[in-house]
């Protein structure tokens, strides 16, 4: 049997809002490591990795590893049936082809059963060692930059140098360049912009995906943007005390 109980149920709602437009169907893997997911978008341009660790739940029981295939739009619909302050319990019996969501509030409870799906998926090894630039900044600022740039162009060039991180785009009406410099706020670390770089790096990415990733903004005050030497982009939002949601995005490359 698998069962988890999340007191702050709104957190799971925010997770679903962050990924449901990027990925249609995905396997949620339940193991001693936690409640996790790895899935690509249908075009295989982006990959999302989610981990919610067992100690973040009020109760977490996983007798054996199971993989629950879910349509994320349907899961989101069910989560919206619960109130924002509800406690959420998710339960699946071994061998069952359904999963049960229970919502509890001081006023009562509600149960929803959702059909599971068989989804073919592969797990991917993620090599963090090739990282050559890391930028941590306020997530709201990153969201604003992606939104502003997508009103001008379709693609953003992200360049990290000793000067800071530059986001640039070009469109029919002209060009846009936004530079964020390192800025460490000791009193409010969540408002800091911190840049760590082993070598300058620059690459371009579709803004449509970047804007999709920023739907995770309500999960965290800060976002960490990493670029590897192979120009793979990783955008990570930590989920307080529990884990993370990471988005990986493949670059646009010269023909």
């Amino acid at each position: 049997m698998f069962e988890l109980r999340l007191v702050q149920g709104s957190l799971l709602k925010k997770v679903l809002e962050a990924i449901k437009d990027l990925v249609n169907d995905a396997n949620f893997d339940c193991s001693a490591t936690g409640f996790s997911l790895q899935a690509m978008d249908p075009s295989h341009v982006a990959l999302v990795a989610l981990l919610l660790r067992p100690d973040g739940f009020e109760h977490y029981r996983c007798d054996r590893n199971i993989s629950m295939g879910m349509n994320l739009n349907n899961m989101s619909k069910i989560l919206k049936c619960g109130g924002n302050d509800d406690i959420i319990t998710i339960r699946a019996d071994d061998g069952s082809d359904t999963v049960t969501f229970m919502f509890e509030s001081p006023n009562g409870s509600a149960n929803f059963e959702m059909n599971l799906m068989d989804i073919d998926s592969e797990h991917h090894g993620i090599d963090e060692s090739k990282c050559c630039a890391v930028v941590r900044m306020p997530s709201s600022e990153f969201q604003r930059i992606c939104k502003v740039l997508s009103s001008i162009g379709d693609t953003v060039v992200i360049s990290v140098t000793n000067e800071g991180v530059q986001f640039s785009t070009r469109g029919d009406i002209g060009t846009a360049n936004i530079v964020c410099r390192q800025n460490i706020n000791v009193d409010k670390p969540e408002e800091s912009t911190v840049i760590e770089m082993s070598q300058p790096v620059s690459s371009q990415f579709p803004l449509r995906y970047m804007n999709s990733f920023t739907k995770a903004t309500p999960l965290s005050n800060t976002v960490t943007i990493s670029l590897t030497s192979e120009l793979l982009l990783a955008v990570e939002y930590t989920i307080a005390e529990m884990g993370y949601i990471r988005f990986y995005l493949a670059p646009k490359i010269e023909d």
């Binding site: 690509m40 075009s43 295989h44 341009v45 982006a46 990959l47 592969e122 797990h123 991917h124 090894g125 993620i126 090599d127 693609t155 371009q204 579709p206 590897t228 192979e230 793979l232 990986y248 995005l249 493949a250 670059p251 646009k252 490359i253 010269e254 023909d255």
Partner: peptide, 14 residues
């Protein structure tokens, strides 16, 4: 011009 690469080339299957 530039073309979009796919994510699969960056990850090894487990």
């Amino acid at each position: 011009g530039s073309k979009q690469s796919t994510i699969t080339r960056f990850f090894s299957k487990i």
